[in-house]
């Protein structure tokens, strides 16, 4: 049985990466995003980066399985993000999140992706809705914990 959801609840942190050249090249091929910035060390160096940045979408999309694993009674219906600073090839990435707002119908999650730097590389927000099969149960926001 699922716990109720309260503002401030933290999602279990997920660690991904580090991603190497092959991983970035594979993502570029699958996604069609062949922006040379992600694959070209010299180009990355020209903008002062020690290594090419990981594709922002590769990192942002990694929140989807994290959110799906967190709660089976919720469905992700939207998410948005700002790419604040690059997370570089070779860095381990920590994905975290906490409940920002909770209503009986929707849950809003603040998302963070941290690479090696102290400041987050990505700050985002996800919107999740309760699946119809569990609506009206104690799993909803604000119904208290078991």
């Amino acid at each position: 049985m699922s716990h109720a959801i309260s503002v401030g609840d933290k999602l279990p942190e997920v660690v991904i990466g580090p991603f190497d050249c092959e991983a970035l090249a594979r993502y570029a091929e699958v996604s069609g995003d062949d922006n040379p910035l992600h694959l070209d060390d010299a180009l990355a160096a020209k903008i002062g980066l020690a290594a090419p940045p990981v594709h922002g979408m590769k990192l942002l999309a990694a929140f989807e399985p994290m959110l799906a694993k967190w709660r089976k009674d919720l469905s992700l219906v939207g998410f948005s993000a700002k790419f604040i600073q690059p997370i570089l090839r070779g860095e381990t990435v920590r994905l975290s999140g906490r409940v920002l707002r909770a209503s009986p119908d929707e849950i809003f999650i603040r998302l963070f992706a941290h690479g090696a730097a102290r400041a987050p590389g990505i700050i985002g927000e996800a919107t999740l809705r309760f699946l119809p099969s569990v609506s009206g149960t104690e799993a909803k926001a604000g119904a208290g914990r078991p």
Partner: peptide, 26 residues
Amino acid sequence: RAAAYARETGGDGSSVPLSYPALWLM
């Protein structure tokens, strides 16, 4: 392609990722 993209982004490929349209923009 949806399954391959899901796997590349940590998913299991059982559903279409919400971010899949990013591929269409390419």
